[in-house]
């Protein structure tokens, strides 16, 4: 089998995932997954609970080592990079974790300003200013000195989003950015994601179950099913997909090929 070479990557492609496999014991989560993300594009990954969406983005940012396959970021193959090199690559990324993953020993402002503190020479005052600005972007005010344990679920999510965007990264990975938010706040976050793309040309991968948000923020939508991306297309293409699995999922029907276990 010919190996995919670097020269095959189109200049427009920022993230390329080829034949990605990842298993946990006998649980074969990803089974030869392919995905390409173009520069400045917002791709939404949808798929059932436990299909491996979080595993996919953790592989992309190097938190999980794939069993097989390759991942290219900006033309560089990072799949088997060591910690030091991964560290450099990760500076291009911001990641919103599904459950926030806020540092619970630090107040909100230190959480959001963590990257700035670690990787820049900014003074605490300057960091606090940037933090306040990022918090305002996610619709939060006056929470700087609260501890994560004092926040509600939705607030945690938004603080975590603020932390992800604080360093103004090139690539953003959102793991369910709107889950647990009220409909209005969810829309604020959708708008923010769109703005980040339009104003800062951020490339992003967003995981979501919320189809409304998927249609709104996605330039393209990719459906993950049984370890592979079974369909990629613009929101309209996905809405009109002929694939029954996709149709069942986006319409949220309990009857269909997914539940019949095909």
């Amino acid at each position: 089998m010919p190996k995919e070479g670097q020269q095959d990557i189109k200049p427009d492609t920022l993230i390329m995932v080829r034949d990605l496999c990842k298993s946990f014991g006998s649980n074969h989560v990803l089974q030869g997954l392919n995905l390409e993300v173009n520069r400045g594009e917002d791709i939404v990954v949808i798929g059932g609970s436990g299909t491996g969406k979080s595993v996919l983005i953790k592989c992309i940012i190097g938190l999980l080592k794939p069993d097989r396959g390759t991942i290219y970021i900006d033309g560089e193959e990072i799949t088997y990079y060591n910690e030091a090199k991964l560290n450099e690559i990760r500076k291009k990324f911001g990641m919103l974790f599904q459950f926030g993953a806020l540092f619970d020993s630090m107040p909100v402002w230190e959480n959001v300003g963590f990257g700035l503190k670690q990787h820049t020479n900014l003074k605490d005052d300057e960091i606090r200013d940037i933090v306040a600005e990022k918090l305002a972007m996610v619709g939060l005010k006056g929470v700087e000195y609260l501890m994560p344990s004092e926040l509600s679920g939705g607030m945690k999510k938004r603080v975590s989003l603020a932390r992800a965007i604080a360093m103004e990264p090139e690539i953003l990975l959102y793991d369910e950015p709107t889950t647990g938010l009220d409909p209005i706040m969810a829309d604020v976050i959708n708008e923010l994601i769109i703005q980040l793309r339009e104003k800062l040309r951020v490339t992003s991968i967003a995981i979501t179950h919320d189809m409304k948000s998927a249609y709104k923020i996605g330039d393209r939508i990719a459906m993950l099913y049984k370890g592979k991306i079974i369909e990629v297309g613009t929101p309209d293409e996905i809405k009109n997909s002929k694939n029954e699995i996709v149709q069942q999922f986006i319409q949220g029907k309990s009857e269909g090929p997914i539940t019949r276990g095909e």
Binding site: I61, E83, E88, M95, A101, D104
Partner: peptide, 21 residues
């Protein structure tokens, strides 16, 4: 206990993701 909690709540992953060892 502290580091274990950080591990299971993905805070250690978050450190990696923020390019901090």
């Amino acid at each position: 206990a502290e580091l274990g909690t950080m591990q299971v709540t993905e805070q250690i992953d978050a450190l990696y993701a923020l390019a901090t060892n």
